[in-house]
Design a protein around this nucleic acid. Structure first.
Lengths: 194, 194
DNA sequence: GGTAGACTATGACGAACGTTATAGCCAGAG
DNA sequence: CTCTGGCTATAACGTTCGTCATAGTCTACC
């Protein structure tokens, strides 16, 4: 008992994140998530008793932490290095999946809440975006950027990368990523001189 | 006969674009699209015999042309005016829908092709992005921007706005749009001085 | 006024959906 | 050994999905 850290549970979450990033939340069925993680369907409802919403929420947070970890590490070398890592990470996701996968956080963010209630997965997506922005903005400020400028630039960076990943998938090319990389690197160099 | 320009057909396409922008493509059923346009289900298969994919493709192109029209008009006053119109247009979509609607082109762009085939709706999304970028880039060049710089800035703008619209929905706030607006306006003013 | 062809109404098809229930397995504690 | 409780296996529930077929209505021209 109390042995709730079975590798099976994390495998389901990681697999769910991958599938959501490819097909979107509502096009991904719980049966497929289970099969993709080689777990029985019953297990998903055992680990995630609140069903699909809970699984989606955890997948978003899982991705958020995965990216944040890389971001935190590379930002130690300054905001430009952090941005490069951010760009490379998403480029790898897109290329390795042959333009099939993207960002699961974005995929969840654009699904409409149909009740009056705001689904927890959407709130989680907002928090993940906020977290990424804060990491970037803090680093920019630490390297000399003005407070307001840092916040604006961080938002621009996260939004542009998210949008560009989607554009790369549609165009089946990484050229959009290459283009915004140049622009963002210049911007960051100018805003955070030291 | 030959009276294929019934208002009913366009109503279905416009309604489909709206619904796709809210819930994504696969979460939007043909039955709901028909009901939303007050058209019978049979009519959708009469007007769009290739089914859901055709309807999605036309919805993407419809939105693409709607935005391009506004863009072309406002860009006559220069790239800064065009950008402002682009931002305002999407801000209006997000606010008027109480953060429920976004961009249907983005929604279609992030759906995985499950066969080896690339669905026509995805190709249409790529073309729409390309069209918006070209409109912006041409205007930037006409006002003095370098060729390469103009292309990069146009891609950054479209991608950032698309990503920001999604962020605004998740956060239920227009603040991200306000932030990137400032940054992009400065960028464009610097790149296209006259 | 009759006939053709554009549109609508209705219902059905198999498949897949999210979710739940129940019975079985199989480790470790007593 | 027995027993408990975490996990699995299997089947079923009601609903909705995309798509198709068919019969009916309506309108515009000859």
């Amino acid at each position: 008992m109390a042995k709730s850290s079975t590798p099976s549970r994390e495998r389901i979450v990681a697999g769910a994140a991958d599938m959501i990033s490819r097909r979107g939340l509502s096009a991904t069925s719980i049966r497929e998530m289970a099969k993709h993680a080689k777990a029985p369907l019953g297990s998903t409802y055992h680990y995630f008793p609140e069903g699909k919403q809970q699984l989606a929420t955890e997948a978003v947070r899982y991705t958020g932490e995965w990216v944040a970890r890389s971001l935190r590490k590379e930002l130690e070398a300054g905001p430009a290095a952090g941005l490069k890592a951010f760009l490379d990470l998403w480029r790898k996701v897109v290329v390795d999946s042959d333009f099939h996968a993207g960002c699961p956080v974005l995929a969840v963010a654009i699904e409409e809440p149909q009740d009056g209630e705001i689904p927890p997965a959407l709130t989680a997506a907002a928090e993940v975006f906020e977290q990424w922005e804060t990491l970037l903005a803090d680093s920019l400020r630490a390297y000399g950027a003005q407070t307001e400028q840092a916040a604006q630039l961080a938002t621009l960076t996260v939004a542009a990368v998210e949008g560009t990943v989607a554009m790369c998938r549609a165009k089946r090319s990484t050229e959009p990523l290459d283009r915004i990389a140049e622009q963002l690197l210049v911007l960051i160099a100018a805003a955070a001189p030291k």
